[in-house]
Design a protein around this nucleic acid. Structure first.
Length: 203
DNA sequence: TACTAGATTATCT
DNA sequence: GATAATCTAGTAT
C-alpha cells in the first residue's frame, strides 16, 4: 500500500470550523501531509488525537483567556497551533471552530506513511512504531517548531488528506486525555483501536 | 516490568 | 520565580 500525497483530496476549511470534539474524532484515519524544503513529502495517518475545548475545559490552554501563547487557538480554524513544553518538546495542534472561540485538537500519534527515512533521521531511531508515538515525537519527526505556528492547513505545503480509510465509529475508542490534571475526567481523547502506533500503551 | 528523575525554556503571574 | 497537553534513560523489583 503506497501512499500518494494528493492536495485535491485535502480537507477544506469548513471541516475545521466544526465542533472540536467532532473534528478530533473525524481526524482519526486521515493523513497529515507536509512538504519539506527539499520538496519531499512527510505523511502520517492520524491514529490518536485529543480535543481541547473553549468552555468548561480547565486544562485547555485557552481556559485563562487570550494570551500571547494561545493566540492561534482564538483564530479561525484550519491553522496550526504549536507550543514548546517542558523546555524540550514541541506539540502540534489543529485549530478548530470560528475565530474567537479558542479550541484545538492535539495530534498525539501518527502511523508513518511517507518520508519515513526523513522521520528516522529527525527522530534518530529506526523503530517505525515509535517514530510518531506521542505528541513530542510527532513534532520532532515532522520537524515542526514555533515557526510553524499559524501555518495554514489548507495549503499545498501542509494539509490533511482524506485517504479513504475512515475508521468506523466502532474502531475508534474514546478515553480521558493523557498528561493533564485539570478536567482530567472528560472523555476527549480519540484513538484508533488496535493501532500499534498509538501512545500511552504497554507492550 | 515499574517507577523516578532529569532535561531545559517560552510564557505567564 | 514557577510552571508545563512530554520523553527517555536509568535503577529498582
Amino acid at each position: 500500500m503506497t501512499f500518494q500525497p494528493d492536495f485535491k483530496k485535502s480537507l477544506n476549511k469548513s471541516f475545521f470550523l466544526q465542533d472540536t470534539a467532532t473534528v478530533a474524532r473525524q481526524l482519526i484515519g486521515k493523513a497529515l501531509v507536509k512538504q519539506t524544503e527539499g520538496s519531499d513529502y512527510l505523511a502520517g495517518k492520524i491514529v490518536e488525537a485529543e480535543a481541547y475545548l473553549s468552555e468548561g475545559d480547565l486544562s485547555s490552554h485557552s481556559a485563562p483567556g487570550l494570551t500571547k501563547r494561545n493566540a492561534p487557538m482564538f483564530e479561525e480554524g484550519g491553522i496550526l497551533y504549536v507550543y514548546f513544553i517542558y523546555g524540550v518538546h514541541h506539540c502540534i495542534n489543529i485549530v478548530t471552530e470560528p475565530a474567537g472561540t479558542g479550541a484545538a485538537v492535539l495530534i498525539r500519534a501518527l502511523e508513518p506513511l511517507a518520508g519515513i527515512e526523513i522521520m528516522k533521521k529527525n527522530r534518530e531511531t529506526d523503530d517505525i512504531q515509535k517514530l510518531c508515538k506521542g505528541p513530542g515525537n510527532v513534532a520532532k519527526a515532522f520537524n515542526f517548531n514555533l515557526n510553524d505556528n499559524r501555518s495554514s492547513l489548507t495549503s499545498e505545503g501542509l494539509f490533511i488528506q482524506d485517504i479513504g480509510e475512515d475508521a468506523g465509529h466502532s474502531e475508534i475508542s474514546v478515553t480521558p486525555r493523557i498528561g493533564i490534571v485539570k478536567s482530567a475526567h472528560l472523555p476527549l481523547r480519540f484513538y484508533l483501536e488496535n493501532s500499534p502506533f498509538v501512545s500511552g500503551k504497554k507492550k
